[in-house]
Computed example of a mutant assay.
Amino acid sequence: MKSSYPIPGDPWPPDMTMTVEDRPTTVNEMLWVREAFALNVTGDAPPPLLDTPAPASRPLTDAERDHWATAWPGLWSQVVDHAGRLHDREAMDRLMHRDTPPDERETLLHRLSGPSWRDEFGDEVFDDPSYRAWDARSFEAVRSAHPRSLEAQPERRAVSELASAWGRGLVKVVVLACEGTHVRTLPPQGLLVTAGDRAEDASYREALTSFRPR
């Protein structure tokens, strides 16, 4: 988002741009796996999802459950760190060239999409009624929550703190569909917050104030 043109008295700096990712696909997939398979993960994990998915239909052996729970925190960190980065225009431009070799295309696609649960455990994990239903509800929840006016957007309501964070280097906000509070700076210039934090003015201002580039 960016101000279309300078408006006298408007606190939004005319040259400030900010990307808000309110439905990060690979991040959401990780959160669904954690809850649908009831993984007991440790480390810097966010709070539960606002919309609890139904249990996955696929049963896990004890060995699989232990392996998944052990793998989840490290992969989670990689996934959210990539989600905090801006779109890689150089990779996209190269991908669009007809003369790009197939092996380079695969590398570029992975560079754009970043790490994911699918890379480690396969696409079939998400061929599950629980995931399909939850993903559809997630899409509708985000769509219906979009403010109808510019001034009602959370970023406009917290524009002073947002502008200060932008001045310190913030370029992207990644929103988790989770309850409670979970704020984390993402390298190099991103911020991770929950949907609840972003919806509440005081919480969002506090989260933006906490941003420090890494």
Score class of each variant (00 low, 15 high):
residue 4 S to M: 13
residue 4 S to D: 14
residue 5 Y to M: 05
residue 6 P to F: 12
residue 7 I to G: 02
residue 7 I to M: 13
residue 10 D to T: 02
residue 12 W to C: 11
residue 12 W to R: 11
residue 14 P to L: 03
residue 15 D to M: 07
residue 16 M to K: 11
residue 22 D to P: 04
residue 24 P to E: 14
residue 30 M to F: 05
residue 31 L to S: 07
residue 33 V to A: 07
residue 33 V to K: 05
residue 33 V to L: 14
residue 35 E to A: 07
residue 36 A to S: 12
residue 41 V to T: 15
residue 42 T to R: 00
residue 43 G to S: 13
residue 45 A to G: 04
residue 46 P to L: 08
residue 46 P to V: 05
residue 48 P to D: 11
residue 50 L to P: 00
residue 50 L to A: 06
residue 53 P to Y: 14
residue 55 P to E: 10
residue 56 A to F: 15
residue 57 S to N: 13
residue 57 S to V: 12
residue 58 R to A: 08
residue 60 L to H: 10
residue 61 T to M: 03
residue 62 D to E: 14
residue 64 E to F: 03
residue 66 D to E: 15
residue 66 D to H: 08
residue 67 H to T: 14
residue 69 A to G: 00
residue 71 A to M: 13
residue 77 S to E: 15
residue 77 S to C: 01
residue 78 Q to V: 01
residue 78 Q to N: 08
residue 79 V to R: 09
residue 82 H to P: 01
residue 83 A to S: 03
residue 84 G to L: 09
residue 85 R to D: 04
residue 85 R to N: 04
residue 85 R to A: 03
residue 86 L to E: 13
residue 89 R to P: 00
residue 90 E to P: 01
residue 90 E to Y: 03
residue 91 A to M: 04
residue 91 A to E: 12
residue 91 A to C: 02
residue 92 M to T: 09
residue 92 M to R: 13
residue 92 M to I: 02
residue 93 D to C: 00
residue 93 D to N: 01
residue 94 R to S: 06
residue 96 M to E: 07
residue 96 M to H: 07
residue 100 T to V: 15
residue 100 T to L: 03
residue 101 P to Q: 05
residue 102 P to Q: 05
residue 103 D to H: 04
residue 105 R to S: 11
residue 105 R to C: 12
residue 106 E to D: 13
residue 106 E to C: 02
residue 107 T to Q: 12
residue 107 T to P: 00
residue 107 T to F: 01
residue 108 L to S: 02
residue 108 L to H: 03
residue 111 R to Y: 09
residue 113 S to H: 10
residue 115 P to Y: 09
residue 115 P to G: 05
residue 120 E to H: 05
residue 121 F to A: 12
residue 121 F to Q: 10
residue 124 E to A: 08
residue 126 F to S: 08
residue 127 D to I: 04
residue 127 D to L: 09
residue 128 D to H: 10
residue 130 S to I: 06
residue 130 S to V: 03
residue 133 A to C: 02
residue 133 A to D: 14
residue 133 A to T: 15
residue 135 D to F: 15
residue 135 D to V: 11
residue 135 D to S: 15
residue 136 A to H: 11
residue 136 A to V: 04
residue 137 R to T: 10
residue 137 R to H: 11
residue 139 F to N: 03
residue 141 A to M: 02
residue 142 V to F: 00
residue 142 V to G: 00
residue 143 R to P: 00
residue 145 A to L: 10
residue 147 P to Y: 01
residue 147 P to R: 01
residue 149 S to F: 09
residue 150 L to Q: 09
residue 152 A to M: 09
residue 154 P to H: 12
residue 154 P to N: 13
residue 155 E to G: 00
residue 157 R to H: 11
residue 160 S to V: 07
residue 160 S to A: 12
residue 163 A to Y: 07
residue 168 R to M: 00
residue 171 V to N: 02
residue 175 V to P: 04
residue 175 V to R: 03
residue 176 L to T: 15
residue 176 L to A: 06
residue 177 A to D: 15
residue 179 E to F: 06
residue 180 G to T: 09
residue 185 T to C: 06
residue 186 L to P: 12
residue 187 P to S: 08
residue 188 P to K: 09
residue 189 Q to T: 12
residue 192 L to W: 10
residue 193 V to T: 14
residue 196 G to K: 11
residue 197 D to R: 02
residue 197 D to T: 15
residue 197 D to S: 05
residue 198 R to T: 04
residue 198 R to K: 09
residue 199 A to F: 04
residue 204 Y to I: 07
residue 206 E to I: 00
residue 207 A to N: 01
residue 208 L to A: 02
residue 210 S to F: 10
residue 211 F to L: 07
